[in-house]
């Protein structure tokens, strides 16, 4: 490389850098400004409730079986009429999703017989430690509708014998 070429390249380099000033910054003001999620992002999991406040999840662990990433851990407990969490015999005593393992495929959503688990693109799971990325039932469960008691509820005997059908009907719009 001759002297002339070296000098030309240096000048071109300086010009290139200067041109960058006219470009919009590629970085953003993070907490206030956020990059839009991909249109295909399904969102994170939420455990839904019925209108009367009972949890939809019946602790069947079908979601855990369907999960390709083995991210869900379900432990079932027994419902009684004095302490009822969900219709039918059983409810999810422990329900954990490891958000670091999850690949957000939505298979759990498809597997669920009661439409209890739903992925919604409301927020993205974030955390500072691995432990904090294991979402517990408390973090996943949505709050009951206004003026409706949370679980466990005391319920009249015989009203919630069936876990799925005929009562209460599944709200397909959810």
């Amino acid at each position: 490389m001759g002297l002339k070429e070296v000098l030309t390249r240096i000048v071109v380099g300086f010009a290139t850098v200067l041109k960058t000033v006219t470009r919009r910054p590629v970085t953003i003001q993070y907490p206030e400004q956020q990059k839009p999620m991909s249109a295909r992002f399904r969102g994170r999991h939420h455990l839904k409730r019925y209108e009367d406040g009972l949890e939809r999840c019946i602790g069947c662990a079908l979601c855990a079986a369907a999960c390709p990433a083995d991210a869900i851990y379900v432990e079932a407990g027994e419902n009684t009429d004095e302490e009822r969490y969900s219709p039918g015999e059983r409810y999810a005593k422990t329900y954990e999703i490891n958000m670091l393992r999850c690949i957000f495929c939505g298979y759990c959503e498809d597997a669920c017989p009661t439409n209890a688990i739903v992925l919604e693109p409301i927020e993205f799971p974030t955390g500072y430690t691995r432990e904090s990325m294991i979402y517990t039932k408390e973090m996943l469960l949505e709050s009951p509708p206004i003026n409706v008691p949370a679980t466990p509820q005391r319920t009249p005997p015989g009203k919630y014998d069936r876990a799925i059908l005929p009562f209460p009907p599944i709200d397909e719009s959810q």
């Binding site: 850098v17 200067l18 960058t20 000033v21 470009r23 910054p25 970085t27 953003i28 003001q29």
Partner: peptide, 11 residues
């Protein structure tokens, strides 16, 4: 430097 590197810089 930030502007020359298409960043925002301290603000």
């Amino acid at each position: 430097l930030a502007r020359l590197q298409a960043r925002i810089g301290p603000n």
